[in-house]
Simulated scan of single mutants.
Amino acid sequence: MNVIDILARLIAFPSVVGTPNGAIADWIGDYCREAGAEVTVHPGPEGDRCNLFATIGPPEGRGYILSGHMDVVPAGEREWSSDPFVLRAAGDRLYGRGATDMKGFLACALAALPKLAAMNLRQPIHLAFSYDEEAGSRGVPHLIAALPTLCNAPLGAIIGEPSRMQAVRGHKGKAAVRLEVIGRSGHSSRPDLGLNAIHAMANLITEVAEYGRSLTSGPFHHDFAPPYSSLQVGVISGGQSVNIIPDRCTADIEVRAVPGISPSSLLEPVKARLMALRDQGFEVGWHELSAYPGLALPEDSGLAALLTGLTGQEPLAAVSYGTEAGLYQQAGIDSIICGPGDIARAHRPDEYIEIGELAACQTMIEKLGASLAEG
């Protein structure tokens, strides 16, 4: 199968984040075994989702990980020009949910696998495909924890998120939480007898937003845009009817931190403000939704030099979006981002990847294999 045929098969699996992914994992596993790879399916604690790990080449050696995620964001937007789970070709563009983020990279790795199998590799190449990355990288920590049982210490990990095939050495860390305020319900004609959770949350959010604005004063890391850490309130929910005092309100908040700043530490002032509402008679809840560390690969690292040779371009210092790379680095594995497509096309209707981008990525992976082959 060529890379386009493989991508069409992957797109056809509606592997939306937070849903069972056995079908796509089974297909990938069967394909890898037919190509000669050793495959391990690693179930997650959810029971209906799994990571997949495949090795081509001598398993006792130290090699490189090609990392990607099998899940995609939902595709419910009306603006899609065709079925998002049926690959559509138009000129050099291939349209479908996940074409860029990031089934394009998975397709390239799988398309390269038969050629890698024929190279008589001296060191292995591993495929590490995770689940629920789009929900805050929930699947890959379980895979990373299992790596000592799956392979010898890797030399590095290439995370194939869309980067227009230019390697990237850094990204911000992120943490997201849900704030919950619980008051006391009642008839809206007697606000003095209730505790309005929405009003309390509104005041809290005003304070939190002001705190978020203070982050623009630094510390700064000028490889990023914006060059400072940031905070956003993304979702608010509460209330039943205009004539009922709302007894519950929630707000989802995220922070993105520049290197050297812990994302969780940025949330501590938010937590303190939430807890202060208990003095006003409210109950409160603090629910962690997701978190991942930033990535900061040194400019003079061997992995950065390797990617320069494979792509013919010097790596970028940083991007503003996040990936699983920081988690690999946190586990002691040098990591870098490099994949086909453009992040600007992701998470939107008519997501697409270009045929030339797929070809360039497959070539990069095959060149990696050639650098590890005998002779």
Rank of each mutant, 00 (worst) to 15 (best):
Y352H: 15
T311D: 04
I353Y: 08
P259K: 00
Y321I: 04
P293K: 02
I261W: 00
L274H: 09
E324G: 06
E314S: 13
L277Y: 07
P340Y: 12
I261L: 09
D334V: 02
E283H: 15
S290W: 00
L274V: 11
L266G: 04
A257Y: 01
P263D: 10
I355H: 11
K271R: 15
P293Y: 03
P293L: 05
L266V: 02
G281F: 03
A346T: 15
A373P: 03
G326V: 06
G285N: 13
R278Q: 15
G312A: 07
M364F: 11
W286D: 02
P298E: 10
R273M: 15
L368P: 07
L307H: 09
A325W: 01
L358C: 04
H287D: 10
G302Y: 04
G285D: 10
G332C: 12
E268C: 09
G312Q: 03
W286E: 05
I365L: 05
P293G: 10
V284D: 04
D300F: 01
S320F: 03
P263Y: 10
I337Y: 08
A305W: 05
S320H: 06
T363F: 01
P259R: 00
V258Q: 00
D350P: 08
Q313L: 13
Y328F: 15
P259Q: 00
A370H: 09
E354F: 04
H347Y: 14
R273T: 07
D279G: 14
I353K: 02
I343V: 14
S264M: 03
A317H: 07
R345N: 12
Q329R: 05
D350W: 06
